[in-house]
Design a protein around this nucleic acid. Structure first.
Length: 352
DNA sequence: AAGATGAACAACCGCGAATAG
DNA sequence: TCTATTCGCGGTTGTTCATCT
């Protein structure tokens, strides 16, 4: 399917991109002739040509494959079509609960290293995993109050930030947080995508925790939950001095606080048999659970580009981009900064 | 019924790593 | 060791279909 309008846009963007990064000057060689190359959706005829050619000759030289197979496609495009769609060993159905769990677990460890994650899921490609993460899993975690980048509860991140601020700034932060998250909370709750049930009798003192519920609730319960969340946030705003120095928004304050909103996720993830381990989020051995920097999580953004492996891994000769030099999966799954106890036996393939 | 919006998936792009010569 | 080429990865965009208003 030719899409001339799209090609026009892309060419323009490419021209701008190249100009901005000096590629024209450097004389970067295009991966294929742009003219006479078809783009967009593949037709069944093209799929057949490519599949039968690869069945006979294998995937030795992607640049030659389109020529030899009689396709007006870029070699790169052929490779992508083959690896993401035509390969006979691919699964095309929905992701199972177990697969989703594996993705979340591994993402908490290796970040956006989709190829590493996909390698543990037979029949799934990195593109599949990436799309599934971006369209579903990220939202699920966010809906649970968990930051999909660091895999920490939003409340913990806020508390960590707050430790660096003076009380008046903390109040402003809480106010901003209320403004930022209010609409999303209301949306999620009223849409019944997630239901939050505040722990009833003992929620007010001591053990204020919020439990993720799959069960349906009455409309007025949603409203009540929203009101409680608002109440807790308001208290945090109005009484920042009441908050203990190292445990901002802790359950010590009466009523549900921001941390109680998402603090206990062990029964929170909507997959059977799956437990998110909030206790791992804090390093409580030194008595100052909130002192670690935001970036001590196993997946944090470095610069503007990649999430990274735990330091121990990188020290271990890891190629931070491909992960091909990772040798010791015991380190990978036992480091303190890892959120999950994922035995290496669980892995389909050792991460190498 | 029609337009708007969102979700899911497919495909493209540039970049850096790996490899060949 | 250096250079050119190829490959694979992750980010991003585009398309299609479903649902909502």
């Amino acid at each position: 399917m030719e899409m001339p309008y799209m090609i026009g846009q892309k060419e323009e963007r490419k021209r701008v991109d190249q100009a901005s990064c000096g590629l024209e000057k450097m004389g970067r060689i295009p991966c294929c002739e742009k003219e006479n190359v078809k783009r967009g959706q593949w037709t069944p005829e093209e799929d057949n040509k490519l599949s039968s050619y690869i069945a006979q000759h294998g995937t030795r030289n992607w640049r030659l494959i389109p020529k030899n197979a009689g396709l007006q496609r870029c070699g790169k495009s052929c490779r992508l079509r083959w690896t993401n769609y035509l390969r006979p060993d691919l699964k095309h159905g929905q992701f199972s609960d177990a697969e989703e769990q594996t993705i979340v677990k591994l993402h908490s460890i290796v970040g956006n290293r989709w190829s590493i994650i996909a390698a543990q899921l037979p029949g799934r490609t990195d593109n599949d995993v990436k799309n599934h993460w971006n369209t579903k899993l990220k939202k699920k975690l966010s809906g649970m109050g968990i930051d999909p980048v660091t895999h920490k509860p939003f409340s913990h991140l806020m508390a960590e930030i707050a430790t660096t601020l003076e009380p008046p700034q903390v109040a402003h932060l809480a106010e901003a947080a209320l403004g930022c998250f209010k609409d999303e909370m209301l949306h999620l709750l009223t849409k019944r995508r997630i239901d939050f049930q505040l722990q009833q009798s003992n929620a007010s003192i001591g053990n204020a925790t919020t439990t993720y519920m799959n069960s349906k609730q009455e409309e007025h319960q949603d409203d009540e939950a929203i009101e409680k969340i608002k109440f807790g946030l308001s208290r945090s705003i109005q009484e920042p001095d009441m908050l203990p120095p190292n445990k901002l928004w802790d359950s010590a304050t009466t009523g549900p606080t921001f941390s109680s909103f998402s603090g206990n996720c062990s029964s929170a993830f909507p997959y059977s048999g799956f437990q998110y381990e909030p206790s791992s989020f804090s390093n409580e051995r030194d008595g100052s659970p909130w002192n670690q920097s935001i970036c001590t999580g196993s997946t944090c953004m470095v610069g503007d580009r990649q999430s990274r492996l735990p330091d121990k891994l990188e020290e271990n000769g890891d190629d931070s981009r491909t992960g091909k030099e990772i040798r010791n999966d015991a380190i990978l799954f036992n480091t303190d900064s890892v959120l999950w106890d994922l035995p290496s036996d669980d892995l389909m393939h050792p991460i190498v």
